[in-house]
Structures are given as structure tokens and as C-alpha cells.
Computed example of a mutant assay.
Amino acid sequence: MREFERKQLLERIERESATVGASIPEEITVQGNEIDLQEFVFEIRRRDTIPQGERERVERAKKNLRRERLQRKQRIEDGEITYEEGDRLAEAIIGIDRALNELESLGPVDIEAEAQAQEAADRKRWMSFLRKALGHADDDSGHGVSGRGR
């Protein structure tokens, strides 16, 4: 594979919009085990609530999918494969990302941590609003002084 092709594939898998319209692979080999990925994701997504035992299974699946994604990406980075193989790996990575997005959107397992994260995000939005409203949006110093007296 030529260098520009390798870079093109890597850019494709890192693009934020890569998973838009992508489908979850029906089956995928993860850590040497064949998984019915599409069925697993849809089964988990159908449930209103996820019991504790299933949460652990989902977390394990996400961890294994992330590891598999990294390994496939590293094969592309190494560049010692054909472009066609790299293209297949990129498609699989995008499918893995799509599955991870679906599994991540199930919501956090730790409700308290999510509440704290939401509160921090609200505080950050509020501070940003105040900085803009007071005319300090472009001030990088963070001291609330907008260039006066300098």
C-alpha cells in the first residue's frame, strides 16, 4: 500500500461523520471469537432497562470492541498490507465504531457520575454564556478583563 493510500484510510476511519449511514456488521471476529455483533447490539437496544449482569456483559463487549478497533487500526498504520485489505479493515473499523456508538448511547452505568458530568457541563455552558454576555468571550487570560488598560 502506498503512503497516501494509508493516510487516506486512516483519515477515513477518524472522520467524525464516518459512521453516518454505516451499518453494524452482522458478524465480526473479536479477540479470536466470532460474534453476532448486529444481533447483540439490537438485542441490547430493545430493552428498556439493562440488568446489572447484562451491563457487565455490555461493558466487556465495548472493551473488546475498542481493543479490536485499535488492533485493526494498527494494521493499517503499519502499512504492510494491500490497499484492498486496508479498505476492508477500514470498513470493519467503521462498523465497530457504529456498534460502539449504539452501545455508548445506552446511557451510563453509573448514574451518580452522569449527574456530576451533567452538572459540570451545565456550569461550563453557563460560564461561557456569561463571558459572552459580558463581552469577555475573546479574552484568553480567564481573568475577566477584556483588554482595558493594557
Rank of each mutant, 00 (worst) to 15 (best):
D78V: 10
A115K: 14
T29I: 14
E59V: 02
G144A: 05
E16H: 04
D110W: 01
V30K: 08
E68W: 01
R148P: 00
L100M: 10
L130E: 07
E34C: 04
A133Q: 12
Q74N: 13
N101V: 01
E54K: 12
F4A: 14
K7C: 03
R46C: 04
V20F: 11
A121E: 14
L103C: 06
D139P: 08
I24F: 05
R6F: 03
V20G: 00
P51A: 05
E112C: 00
G86M: 07
G147Y: 06
E80R: 15
V30S: 07
N64L: 09
E68Q: 11
D110S: 06
A115T: 05
Q118L: 13
R150D: 10
N33E: 13
S23F: 09
F129W: 13
I44R: 11
E114D: 15
G147K: 08
A133C: 00
S17K: 11
L100N: 10
R131F: 08
E114Y: 07
R131K: 14
R55P: 02
R45Q: 11
H136V: 10
E26S: 13
E11C: 01
V41Q: 05
G79S: 07
L10H: 01
D87R: 12
I44K: 10
I50F: 00
G32W: 03
L65T: 04
R12P: 11
P108R: 12
P51M: 02
L89R: 06
G144E: 06
I96N: 10
M127P: 00
D97Y: 00
R98V: 05
A92S: 14
A18L: 04
S105D: 14
D122L: 02
K73E: 15
L70S: 09
I28D: 03
D87W: 00
R15Q: 12
E59Q: 14
G79Y: 07
L9N: 07
D78E: 13
R60K: 14
G135H: 04
G135F: 01
G147A: 10
G142M: 05
E59F: 01
Q31Y: 03
R123T: 13
R131T: 08
R67L: 12
G21R: 03
D138T: 09
E43H: 04
R55S: 11
A61F: 04
I96S: 09
N64I: 00
R75K: 15
R75Y: 01
I81C: 08
E84M: 04
L89D: 09
G147E: 09
Q116V: 06
I44M: 11
A90P: 09
R12G: 09
A61Y: 02
K73S: 07
R148N: 11
S146Y: 02
L89A: 05
S128T: 14
E26Y: 02
A117E: 14
L70N: 06
I28G: 07
E59T: 08
Q52F: 06
P108Y: 05
V145I: 12
H136G: 08
K124Q: 13
G142W: 01
Q52D: 13
D140P: 15
E5K: 07
G107M: 03
A99M: 04
S23E: 15
P108D: 15
T49H: 06
E80T: 12
E34K: 15
A18H: 04
G95V: 02
D140Q: 11
E11F: 01
I13D: 07
A90C: 05
M127R: 11
E34M: 10
K73R: 15
P25I: 04
E56V: 12
I96E: 10
E16C: 00
W126L: 10
E84S: 10
I24A: 08
I76F: 03
K63A: 13
T29L: 10
